[in-house]
Design a protein around this nucleic acid. Structure first.
Length: 150
DNA sequence: GCCAACGTTGGC
DNA sequence: GCCAACGTTGGC
């Protein structure tokens, strides 16, 4: 069982929205490294931190799980989609998505600020300088430690 | 709104 | 294969 963190701008897709719809295709990832994490790392039932980015208080706001293994992201072929990628070869599509299922909201936001200050996380992909990955791995130790301060 | 960091693109 | 230009992310 692996652990992950996914980022979303709350204006685009918030934890409250996920709580309402219960389950959502995590489409629109257009970064190869992030795609590879979904394709090669994510297993059914993996636990995932839901992170709000680009907002007043960036941080982890909820938990979800991987509900469907990586599959073809249909938005890449949809000209009406913001995520349309006309350069993706139909016979060898570039982009994949998984489905995530809502688990619960955290009692409070564990802020980016806190995460940066937290001791003992070791090398954490979220707080690496210049990190911009929207899907990134979390170790079991990091997961436990972070959840313990909820 | 600014801008640093970084990935991608395309000319050569 | 190099690298400048450009676009995007995301904190501040």
């Amino acid at each position: 069982m692996n652990h992950w963190l996914v980022k979303s701008e709350p204006d685009e897709f918030s934890i409250d929205r996920l709580a309402k719809v219960k389950r959502e295709p995590w489409s629109g990832v257009r970064n190869y490294q992030a795609r590879n994490f979904m394709r090669d790392g994510m297993q059914l039932g993996d636990e995932v931190f839901f992170y709000h980015s680009n907002c007043d208080v960036p941080g982890i706001v909820g938990l979800c799980t991987v509900a469907k293994l990586a599959y073809l992201d249909p938005t890449q072929f949809d000209p009406k989609s913001d995520y349309h990628d006309p350069a993706s070869p139909p016979d060898n599509p570039r982009w994949l998505c998984v489905d995530v299922a809502f688990k619960r909201k955290l009692k409070r936001t564990i802020t980016l600020d806190e995460l940066k200050m937290m001791d003992g996380l070791g090398d954490f992909a979220l707080t690496r300088r210049g990190n911009r990955l929207s899907v990134l791995p979390v170790t079991a130790a990091q997961w436990k430690k972070i959840l313990s301060v909820e």
